[in-house]
Design a binder for these strands. Structure first.
Lengths: 334, 334
DNA sequence: TTGTAGGCGTTATCAT
DNA sequence: ATGATAACGCCTACAA
């Protein structure tokens, strides 16, 4: 009773393997009673058709890969929730990969997925590199890919992003409206997609209000928390900004720590607005630009399944832009 | 060039499929040059052996399932990180499942995993039900399971927990030492494992300091955020506690919101300590009992691989208790 | 409505 | 060191 399979069932029930198979596939070419008899017996013996054998036969895995930079981050966690939601409804499995923002890991994961391991991939990218061949081979193998939030512009796949430019513009204008004259922009890498677009929104908002864009006030940080702490500390000491617009949650958090230690009062001395999906932002009183993370996950997964459903046929790849929302809280109160 | 497999490779390279296979398996029974020639050619054509076919052959999936109540929660996210870390090193894939704390989902997932879908399962359970047969069939099929944090005591599998009793005792004592006379205990379900053990620590600490355990001060909450808000609000109004020990992070968060709205000052009017893995707890000033989530993930995965390595042989199942740590912050300052 | 048989891609065994 | 072959469990023409 250990290795139960279709053959064994067939023998026990005096039926053929095809009939057993049909009972599970929901085929109509089977007598209702027969099916029920089979399913009942199967249930009793805890049998389910082996997924991998079916994969091999069908060349369908009913599995998708989700590749994200981090998991312990409310944005990605919520996005994964959205993806999971859709996948579950479709009866798909989710294979989870975390890159730690290391481009090499991303490449290596994707390369692994190249031989029929999954039917599709949803990812938020980690790199800024130009050699995206590792992604192009997926297309050749007809494995659809959807990017969300962090994307490579030069790759022709469906994308789900948010209106980063507009919300950055709005957030910056908001800071200006509270009276800020020297607004610093915190960014991890000002030359890649998100950092760049958000900076543009920031810069244009300044311009609109007759304020000069000062390169000094663009504080370029790293992936390392400790280093960021020093960078931000120095920036606050040297530049004495009266406002901070942070393109990334963890830089705002770092700024908070610095302010705590330096006895800088928020919002008294310094007003702060940050991109963030922190669920407890209200408690912190942090003003945020919040992306619809969960909805982005839903959308990304939906797009992927769209492509999967039209399998083979060419699908017109689009970028779907969802709207972020500015929540003004205590950290930028007048 | 679409459907490349070892047969195709064999033909192109004038070798047999066995030789090709050996090149990938790291077998020593192959000429070094031959192997390199094969690997080079394979790489050039983006070929990797099909994982599912290998599964079918070997009855090894190199995949494990992780089942958790939530993903968008710092504790679980960090635990998953730990699991992922270990799994990656072992070359294992992770299939992720989220139960939303719905017992039926847990049962259904586990049942799905019953037919060779994964080599092992790591889970933090959602139920309190008594019918754990769905788990027992896994044992019959030699699929090892490891529980972490939330466990079923009556199931004989390896478990990773924390010293909940001691840390609850310590946290409560700490509140007493700050002068609290009426300490409320917030819990989601005081009759199941975690809620129960933590309450015992709370009760015993009170007893040690000659304080009476007052059942009224045990505030039993629900899974619903809104309902919890009212429950806690009523509790604060009616019971007028001067301290809160929360067994679960989100109840503490709810309490914070209530205090905000009711103008109750923390720690002035009310001191708060909570179990929590919130990464930004320091910023909130929330005193926490913090579980080593990441390490628990590491440990759970390690235990699972131990069982996998000794495959078949009986493994003595143990409960591994890691230590939580009390961080006293502003919310319980004197 | 049910049964037969071949093949999905791989690897282990056995032979050479 | 390399090759031929059978088998893993399933599904789907095709046949009956």
């Amino acid at each position: 009773m250990d290795n139960i399979n279709i053959k064994v069932l067939a023998k026990k029930l005096n039926l053929s393997t095809s009939t057993i198979s049909r009972a599970f596939s929901g085929s109509t070419d089977i007598n209702k009673d027969t099916r029920e008899r089979i399913l009942a017996f199967a249930k009793e013996h805890n049998f389910l058709p082996n997924h991998y054998a079916a994969n091999l036969r069908d060349k369908k895995t009913r599995t998708l890969a989700v590749i994200v930079p981090e998991i312990a981050n409310d944005f990605f966690a919520q996005a994964i929730n959205g993806i999971e939601e859709v996948a579950r409804k479709k009866g798909f499995y989710i294979l989870l990969y975390r890159t730690d923002d290391v481009f090499e890991k991303e490449v290596s994961f994707v390369n692994y997925l190249n031989n029929g391991k999954v039917d599709g991939i949803i990812m938020s990218v980690s790199g800024e590199a130009n050699d995206h061949n590792y992604l192009k081979t997926l297309a050749k193998k007809n494995i659809p890919v959807v990017f969300f939030d962090r994307v490579y512009e030069d790759i022709d796949v469906s994308k789900v992003t948010t209106n980063d430019y507009e919300s950055s513009f709005e957030a910056t204008e908001h800071l200006i409206s509270t009276g800020c004259k020297r607004i610093a922009y915190l960014v991890v890498n000002k030359s890649i997609s998100i950092g760049k677009v958000r900076m543009q929104g920031y810069a244009d908002a300044l311009a609109k209000h007759g304020m000069v864009f000062n390169d000094e006030l663009v504080v370029d940080c790293s992936q390392d928390e400790k280093i960021n702490y020093s960078i931000i500390k120095n920036a606050l000491e040297d530049l004495k900004p009266d406002g901070i617009f942070s393109s990334v949650e963890r830089l705002a958090v770092a700024a908070y720590y610095v302010c705590n230690d330096m006895n800088i009062s928020i919002p008294g001395d310094l007003k702060v607005v940050s991109f963030s999906s922190l669920q407890i932002a209200p408690l912190l009183g942090l003003s945020t630009v919040t992306q619809p993370a969960y909805e982005m996950g839903i959308k990304a997964a939906t797009l992927l399944f769209d492509e999967l459903d039209k399998k083979g046929q060419h699908v017109f790849k689009k970028t779907h832009v969802l709207k972020s929302k500015l929540f003004v809280r205590k950290s930028s109160a007048i």
